[in-house]
Design a protein around this nucleic acid. Structure first.
Lengths: 181, 181
DNA sequence: CTCGTATGAGACAACAACGTCTCACGGCGT
DNA sequence: ACGCCGTGAGACGTTGTTGTCTCATACGAG
C-alpha cells in the first residue's frame, strides 16, 4: 500500500527523460499514483528533482562500490561497473541529460563521483591498458553519454535490454574499428 | 536589425539543452531579443521546437552531404562527418536529448537520417573496417550520444572546443583500450 | 472487529506562463 | 527629410499548472 519512493522516482526519471516538461499530474500517472500522493511524498517539483538527483547519485556511488573498481585490471573493472550501472541506466540517463541541475550550485556529490570515474580511467592509462591521447575526463563524459544513448536505444526498441550492457562496454572499450587480430 | 532565425534557434537549443523547462521569456533573453519578437518569429513554444527540429535535421543532412559519406573508406568518411557536425553540435545535442519530439509522431526526416547514418556504419562493416559484433544501429545511436556528451563537455569547460572533434571521432573509432601496434 | 494510516478523487485559490495587443523608438532605404 | 518595417517594452486576459485542502475509501495491525 505504502508508496515505494524509489519506484516513483524511477518512473519519474523515465518520463522526464522523454519529456522534461511533464506536469506533476503526468508524473503521478506514470508512477501509478494520484497527484495528491505524489505531493505527499515530494513537496513540489523542485523537491522531486532533488530527490531524483540524490537517488541517482547514491545508486551511482553504490554501483562504483559494488563493481570494486580499484581491483584488478581497469578494463575488467570498467566492465563490472557497466554491469552494475545497467539496471540504473534510466535514472542515470536522466541525471546526465538534465543539466538544469548544474545551473544553480552543482550538487557536491558530482565532484566525488567524477573524481572516482576519472580515477578509474587514469588508472587504466597509467597501467598501459587505456590510451593516453584522450583525456580521462573525456572518457568519463563519454561513458555518461553512452549510458544515455543505451537507455534511449533500449526504450526505442533499437537494441535488446540484455544487450545494452555489452553494447556500451564494448563500444567504449574497443570502439567501432575492427581490431587486427 | 532583422533577427537571424537560425541564430535564435541555436541560442534556444543551447539553453533548452541545459534547462528544458525554460520559459519563452528566458529563451528570448538568451537569444538577445524581446519576448514579443520571439513570438513574431515563432507562433509559440511548439512552433519553436518544431523549427528547432527542422533546422537540426536540415543541418544534419547538410553535414552528411558535405562529408560525402559514400566516398572513400568508411573511417575517413566518419571523420569527415564528425568534422562537419562539430559546429552544429549544440543544436544536434538538443535534438537527440529531447525525446519529447518522438512522443507524438516522429518527424519523418529522422527515418531518412537514421538510414543514412546506419548505412555508413554498415558500409564500414561490409568492407571489413568496422567490427560486426555490434550493430550499425547502435553505432549510430552511440554517435548521437557522444555528440551530446562532447557538446556538454565543451560547455562545462572539460574539453577544449577545438578538441571536441578529435575526441568524438577517436573514441568512437578506437575506443578507450590502447591498441597494440 | 476496530482503529490508525495511507491513498484516491476532487475542489479550490494562487501563480506563472502564454499569446495577443498597443505604442513608441530607431535604423534603413528611397 | 520622409516613410517604412522591425523591434523593445509593457499591459492585458486567458490558460494550465501548482500547492493545499477536504472527504471517502481501503488496507493492515493489533
Amino acid at each position: 500500500m505504502t508508496v515505494d519512493r524509489s519506484q516513483v522516482l524511477r518512473a519519474a526519471a523515465t518520463l522526464l527523460t522523454r519529456k522534461a516538461t511533464s506536469s506533476m499530474d503526468e508524473i503521478a500517472k506514470a508512477a501509478g499514483i494520484s497527484r495528491a500522493t505524489l505531493h505527499r511524498h515530494f513537496a513540489g517539483r523542485d523537491a522531486l528533482i532533488k530527490a531524483l538527483e540524490d537517488l541517482g547519485l547514491a545508486r551511482f556511488e553504490a554501483a562504483l562500490d559494488a563493481a570494486d573498481i580499484d581491483a584488478g585490471g581497469a578494463e575488467e573493472a570498467l566492465r563490472r561497473l557497466v554491469a552494475q550501472i545497467r539496471p540504473e541506466a534510466p535514472l542515470l540517463a536522466f541525471l546526465t541529460t538534465e543539466n538544469q541541475l548544474f545551473e544553480g550550485e552543482m550538487h557536491q556529490g558530482w565532484d566525488r563521483l567524477d573524481a572516482r570515474m576519472t580515477g578509474l580511467f587514469q588508472r587504466g592509462q597509467e597501467s598501459g591498458e587505456f590510451r593516453v591521447d584522450l583525456t580521462a575526463t573525456w572518457f568519463a563524459e563519454a561513458l555518461y553519454g553512452l549510458i544515455g544513448a543505451g537507455a534511449w536505444a533500449v526504450h526505442a526498441g533499437r537494441i535488446a535490454p540484455n544487450d545494452m550492457e555489452q553494447m556500451i562496454a564494448e563500444l567504449l572499450l574497443g570502439g567501432v574499428r575492427r581490431s587486427m587480430e
